[in-house]
Amino acid sequence: MNQSRQALGTSPQPTDTNAPAVDARQLSKRYGRTWALRRVDLRVERGELLGLLGPNGSGKTTLLRILSTLTRPTFGAFSILGEPARSRSAILPRIGVLADQAYMYGELTARENLRFAGVMYGLDLDEDSLLEALAGVGLAKVAGREIRTFSSGMRKRLSLARATLHDPELVLMDEPYGALDVEGMAWVDRFVTELRAANRAAIIATHEVDRAKRLCDRALRLDAGRVTYAGPIDGYEVAAE
């Protein structure tokens, strides 16, 4: 699915193709009295899939928010695809974010939601490419339906289409399996497999250790904001879930 979208020529050419997808050092974030992240070091190579594991409230979402430039770290530095953290406008066209929330408007149809996202990404999408993107997640038939009538699985699929509409080189996913049925989970699996086939990098924050083991190359475990495991996914043991 990525080949065809690349043909649109919308993805900016990376300035430094050797730079890792994510390179973060000592990332720390304090909210009031508590540290959500404590000196997290993180490196994700291009084409690598990283499973971000750990219990609720361990800082996974905070880490993804920082990497997607939404939140400033209290201290620590990072770069995304060779771009320093400060250059928001250089990072954002090259990353896709699949958040917990849908980032979609219930009163708009699936097609209208995607069209809006396309305009905001500065893409010139015609009706065909919108439909193609919807077909990629099995929603072509309901393209004209307002998404407040969608099930949570359908919304998630639309979010998948939205997150890769601009053919990002790095995808950040926060709990992609959350509250999905078996079929929905299969769609996410398929999506991740396609990312791998297209040699994209991704960080997948999830509780689903088994799925992470199947899909990811490496694992990073956070506990109370601290890294407690970093290494190949095969060496990751379910220590204290």
């Binding site: 304090r30 009031g32 009295r33 540290w35 404590r38 000196r39 601290r226």
Partner: peptide, 12 residues
């Protein structure tokens, strides 16, 4: 607020 954090830092 910081005093509440100091031991934390040491612990780190």
């Amino acid at each position: 607020e910081l005093a509440a954090l100091e031991p934390d830092e040491l612990e780190m």
